[in-house]
Design a protein around this nucleic acid. Structure first.
Length: 423
RNA sequence: GGAGGAGUGGCAGAGUGGUUUAAUGCAACGGUCUUGAAAACCGUCGUACUCGAGAGGGUACCCGGGGUUCGAAUCCCUGCUCCUCCGCCA
């Protein structure tokens, strides 16, 4: 969430940023500033009154000690009389604060100045195109869901029996391939200096709110009412929240974490041909990287993450391109997002396999993640990215690497799988 | 799930209704001394909001929420977490 001081001091920039996002109700900015003025006035009034009451209470204590009971009793009445006022001011302040908070939660992050204008995914900018050749498959090449059946890689119908639609059951070499990819990604990430984390797969509402899933994506998460817990939609949520309510020392930067978790997403209302097979499922595996950075270095860090993810795809020998998302397509909490898309040759489509973002202070403000900056505290920057999401990588691997003899495993994965082909 | 105990600053740990503006110790930071270091000594040392050009001032916060009182870290209610014992259990 944005900081009110930032909105007050850089109102023009905020309005321009919101416009880039096609944010439809920019008048909330004026509302916020007006409510904040009222909040400050209310707090000043309340504090004055409390100061006066504190002073009198102390006086009453002194009078009692001196045995001047009558005078003390008279003063008691003075304080008692202002009690109602204190109470109503407190309530007013609380209401204003929560109204401001709710309103702030509805305002998305301000895009970085380099973010392109646009409304939909069609307006995203190709940041790095694929300039090598694309796989040239024969006309009878199969989409991954048919390959899965042919080679017993995963079974969607069985998942439907066990759980419901969108919960694949991986089998045999397919299951081993999942495990191999997870290990490969984690090893690559830790080699790049990321500490491996194995977090809980459920989080409480505080955590979901801090990273921005609540209230914005409430309907996308599986929720267990009985225990008031959410199944994580990404490792970003538990991992980023490790540093909720923390004040870092400047020399602790950069903090680099990586975690494998399954991800659970309701994906309400998405059905149809374009979500067949592994293109969109309710449960998938993902290895995430998360960073906490000094504001001066967060964009350099973002660039570094970009190259890291690109390196992973290079090792998997998958054709990919990098998009810079336009204002209309970016996530609510992000300031700048790059998407990685892998080319899935049999479907002849680009599939999103990674999203790498800088959230600047948007998450850290909700999380109260600061660092000591001389005498004061300053909000840190948070970033994260997939490195990588498995399901669609598997889809692309199956399709692009199909041969008459079976599915060829990329060189770098073989020491994890122990086999060279799925046949 | 049952019974009992406990939650105070980075850590340890005092504090059961009014100089608590939370003692003291440790750690940390700055300084004096020293060739350097250690020791010693002096000083600084929570967070947030707010007023102020600044110096500095005000308010709130002792696990969270509510209450009693002129006044609450302290008393009451409630929730959460941790510890001990019992039960259940991969």
């Amino acid at each position: 969430m944005l900081q009110l001081n930032f909105i007050r001091e850089q109102k023009e920039r905020v309005l321009i940023g919101l416009q880039k996002r096609n944010f439809t109700t920019p008048q909330v900015i004026e509302d916020l500033l007006r409510m904040d003025d009222e909040r400050r006035q209310t707090q000043a009034d309340l504090n004055d009154l409390q100061a006066e009451n504190n002073r009198i209470s102390k006086e009453i204590g002194d009078l009692f000690k001196e045995g001047k009971r009558a005078e003390a009793d008279a003063l008691k009445n003075t304080v008692a009389a202002s009690k109602e006022t204190v109470k109503s001011l407190e309530e007013k302040l609380k209401n204003l604060e929560s109204e401001i908070d709710n309103l702030l939660l509805s305002v998305p992050n301000i895009p970085h100045e380099s973010v392109p204008h646009g409304k939909t995914a069609d307006d995203n900018e190709v940041y790095r195109a694929w300039d090598r050749s694309l796989p040239d498959l024969p006309a009878d090449a199969l989409p991954h869901w048919e390959l899965a059946t042919k080679y017993n890689v995963f079974d969607l119908e069985l998942g439907t029996k066990l759980t419901g639609s969108g919960f694949p059951v991986y089998r045999g070499k397919g299951a081993k391939l999942q495990r191999s990819l997870i290990s490969f990604f984690l090893d690559e990430n830790t080699a790049a200096g990321y500490e491996e984390i194995l977090p809980p797969h459920m989080v409480n509402a505080d955590s979901a709110r801090a990273t921005g899933q609540l209230p914005d994506k409430e309907g996308q998460m599986y929720y267990m009412e009985r225990d008031d817990l959410y199944m994580i939609p990404t490792a970003e949520v538990p991992v980023t929240n490790i540093y909720r309510d923390v004040i870092l020392e400047e020399n602790q930067f950069p903090i680099k974490l990586t975690a494998y978790t399954p991800c659970f997403r309701r994906e309400a209302g998405s059905y149809g041909a374009h979500v067949r097979g592994l293109n969109r499922v309710h449960q998938f595996d993902k290895v995430e990287i998360v960073r906490f950075e000094h504001p001066d270095h967060s964009y350099a860090a973002l660039q570094e993450m970009l190259e890291h993810v690109a390196g992973l795809l290079d090792k998997l020998e998958l054709p990919y391109r990098i998009l810079k998302l336009c204002g209309g397509d970016m996530g609510f909490t992000s300031a700048l997002t790059y998407d990685f898309e892998v080319y899935s040759a049999a479907q002849k489509r680009w599939l999103e396999v990674s999203s790498v973002s800088n959230f600047e202070t948007y998450q850290s403000n909700r999380m109260k993640l600061r660092f000591r900056d001389g005498k004061k505290t300053t909000l840190a920057h948070t970033l994260n990215g997939s490195a990588l999401a498995l399901a669609r990588i598997v889809a692309a691997l199956l399709e692009n690497n199909q041969t008459p003899e079976g599915i060829v495993i990329p060189q770098h994965l073989r020491r994890y799988t122990g086999f060279e082909k799925i046949d």
